[in-house]
Amino acid sequence: MNINDVKKRAHSIPLTSPTYSKGPYRFVDREFLIVTYRTDPEKLRELVPEPLEVDMENPLVKYEFIRMPDSAGFGDYTESGQVIPVTFRGRRGAYVHAMYLDDHAPTAGGREIWGFPKKMGHPSLTVDSDTIVGELRYGKMLVATATMGYKFEPFDASAAKATLEAPGFLLKIIPHVDGSLRILELVEYHCEDVQIKGAWSGPVGLELFSHALAPVKDLPVLDIVSGTHIIADLTLGFGRVVHDYLADSTPQAAVHVAREGVEEASVLA
């Protein structure tokens, strides 16, 4: 295989049998169970990277279970994790703090393309009689459970759409071959072409359990604010670099750094 052929074929490891497709990545009947809760503001300050800012007066976390039965290029899988409301240059969005999946292709693709903080786990989202139930296990150990009354009462579709369309932020980390950092970037992404098929709220419960390698309890549940159940079709858009940590030694500076081949125009939670 000559050098030009290598360049043409390369988009995922391994070269001759890519782990995932090139996209776009369209999700059909994507189902969310989102539990919003208040946590320790000092914990948020410790875990959210600058230049993102957290609301210390209203320290919220969204614990999510997401069922994806029809995902172009990625297949049928489920994920679970924590998303933190933040602001970036005055714009509201959400920082994806932790994600656990049961499928290798979206785990690899999410990490390599965007920088999603994905690890392998055993999440599930099911209906038990009159209750929708989310559960996350890491290995055999129970890490998180969430419950909500199934389609208990309607939730405003426009509010659900706004939630899914809000900008998301990721910390992309890729080491060099000598173990040093080669890429350390803040990436912004958006969900596009969102079509809400149903949205509900209702009584909700959430429990987090301590685990050394799945430390979701590091952001403890102090008070549950709300629960939302959403079914939607959407496209996961590609991202853009909004801050390059290795190019800027002053983390407070709100400097937009555009990599070669990355346009300034906004794209894609």
Rank of each mutant, 00 (worst) to 15 (best):
M1Y: 11
V6R: 12
R9D: 14
R9A: 14
A10S: 13
A10L: 15
I13S: 13
I13Y: 13
I13T: 13
P14K: 08
P14D: 08
T16D: 11
Y20N: 05
K22T: 14
Y25S: 04
V28P: 07
D29C: 07
T36V: 07
T36G: 12
Y37K: 08
P41I: 05
E42A: 12
K43I: 09
L44R: 02
L44T: 03
R45A: 14
R45F: 08
V48E: 05
P51K: 06
E53Y: 04
E53A: 13
V54A: 05
M56V: 12
E57C: 10
L60M: 12
V61H: 02
Y63P: 07
E64A: 14
P69L: 09
D70R: 15
S71W: 04
G73M: 06
F74L: 09
G75L: 06
D76Y: 08
T78P: 08
E79A: 06
I84K: 01
I84Q: 03
T87W: 00
G93K: 04
A94L: 11
V96M: 11
H97S: 05
A98T: 10
A98C: 04
M99K: 03
Y100G: 04
L101F: 15
A105P: 15
G109A: 02
G110E: 03
I113W: 00
W114G: 03
G115S: 06
P117L: 09
K118W: 00
K119L: 13
K119M: 13
M120H: 06
G121M: 11
H122Y: 05
V127E: 06
D128Y: 07
S129K: 11
D130R: 03
I132G: 00
I132M: 03
L136Y: 04
Y138H: 14
K140F: 08
M141L: 05
A146H: 04
A146N: 03
M148R: 01
G149L: 01
Y150A: 01
K151A: 01
F152D: 09
P154H: 04
P154D: 02
F155G: 05
D156H: 09
D156R: 05
A159G: 02
A160H: 07
L164C: 10
A166I: 15
A166N: 14
L171R: 10
L171Q: 10
L171K: 06
I174R: 09
P175F: 06
P175S: 13
V177A: 15
I183Y: 10
L186P: 06
V194W: 00
G198R: 01
L208G: 10
S210Q: 15
S210H: 15
S210C: 12
S210T: 15
H211S: 04
A212R: 14
V216Q: 07
D218M: 05
L219A: 02
L219K: 01
L222D: 15
T228W: 07
H229T: 00
H229N: 04
I230G: 01
A232M: 01
A232S: 09
A232H: 00
L234D: 00
F238Q: 12
F238W: 08
G239Q: 09
R240C: 11
V241R: 15
V241G: 13
V242L: 06
L246H: 00
L246V: 06
S249G: 12
T250V: 15
P251D: 06
H256A: 08
A258G: 14
V262L: 11
A269N: 11
